[in-house]
Design a protein around this nucleic acid. Structure first.
Lengths: 227, 227
DNA sequence: ACTTGTCCGAATGTCAACAAAACGGAAGTG
DNA sequence: CACTTCCGTTTTGTTGACATTCGGACAAGT
């Protein structure tokens, strides 16, 4: 049984703001003004401030002295950096999961792949698929059984989520074709306990996602919603 | 010339507190009380609070709801987790540095090894050696030229610093014998542009440090300075 | 003896007012 | 016309006061 935990207004505020950003409401590059958010969430500015600090830790937001916070933008270098780091983390996570997870836990992972496949078959929309995709990786990191690794993942997870959304929003049909196969291949390697192969596959999986997104950014750069 | 940047009281407070912790003043496991720190640093509690949040992001401090912040402790699992993640990051850093850094930058890295060797030869004390050691790795991460990777390194750097200090404080003579050689070996591989070998060496380097520290913790667990 | 309930001191969480800095436009200058 | 300077507005940084929660001590009940 997972312990219930109180978290305070800052976490609540961070959750709301993150949700908003991932729905595109304050678009990439847009400023997040403290007073505005405070009145809208009906919380004090201090709490919003703390929440924004959390989002900055998650890498979803950047802030400068006396200039406030802005949503990150999917520039080529940003995308490259985030996915490169993610590759290193995912490599480690896969290796550890292959080495240390129990058979039943790995079976559960296979179940998540199945759910993803099912959702794809019944024509679920892109955000839904993405949630399942990320859920798979969340579970993978949990199976790696390393708190610090999970924290490191948290520091890139939100940017990945945001970037994948823009990737999908720009209309990348290729994604639907390969998601299930790539995840199933990784899961198979994990179940067969081929740690090194799984690690390499995880790294390559991330690298291919990175390359796909970057090609897309070069050919069709997203609208830079200033304003 | 690197631009000077204003950072605000929170960063200042975080610097002071970090420095204190790394000098052992609030020992591992000890609570960090906001009012106490606020009066001692002559800043408001809010700023201290924000500073503590930064230190939590650095992983040097853990905090719970309504229970405040405590300095992390070098438990076996903590050490294992921190060094395992560090291994993955350092592997990536070494690979990228070998691939992308200029020759002159790598030569500079060799210079840092030289400085370390010199300090060792003239019998510098352990904290001094450790500073140089970490300085080498800081530069390595800079050469990797990836902001997100540097952020991830920041999230484990302070715990590594703290743990290495306890390792030295517990009196591990082996450290002095191998520091220079290990760093020089890595630098040589980088200069020879053998990216894969450098990556493996970096990972192994970290793993050996982890194992040395963990053996030491099992045989001679550090005093759990409650109080 | 062990659990359960209540109180109290201490520490953190939250808030709203004050101070400092940055942005943008108007006025002035070459 | 380009450029700089000034100044008001807007936004963030900082502070001290108030509200909430925690942990332990102590007492009553089983």
């Amino acid at each position: 049984m997972r312990r219930a935990r109180r978290r305070g207004l800052a976490h609540e505020a961070a959750d709301r703001i993150r949700e908003s950003i991932l729905q595109g409401s304050p678009p990439p590059g847009a400023p997040l003004r403290e007073v505005d958010l405070a009145t809208r969430l009906d919380v004090s500015r201090g709490s919003v401030r703390e929440g924004l600090a959390l989002l900055e830790q998650e890498g979803l937001v950047v802030s400068q002295w006396h200039r406030g916070a802005r949503v990150i933008e999917p520039t080529p270098t940003e995308v490259d950096e985030v996915y490169t780091v993610r590759g290193a983390l995912e490599r480690l996570a896969a290796h550890r999961a292959a080495t240390r997870a129990t058979d039943s836990h790995l079976a559960e992972l296979a179940g998540l792949v199945h759910a993803l496949e099912h959702a794809l078959a019944r024509g679920a929309d892109a955000p839904e698929l993405l949630r399942l995709d990320l859920g798979f990786h969340d579970r993978l990191y949990e199976l790696a059984d390393n708190t610090r690794l999970q924290r490191a993942w948290q520091a890139v997870r939100s940017p990945v989520h945001l970037f994948q959304l823009t990737r999908i929003r720009l209309g990348h049909p290729h994604y639907r074709e390969v998601v299930v196969d790539e995840h199933r291949a990784l899961t198979d390697l994990l179940i067969r306990r081929e740690a090194e192969a799984a690690a390499r596959h995880a790294e390559a999986h991330v690298a291919s996602a990175r390359d796909a997104l970057m090609r897309m950014l070069r050919s069709r750069p997203p609208a830079t919603d200033d304003q």
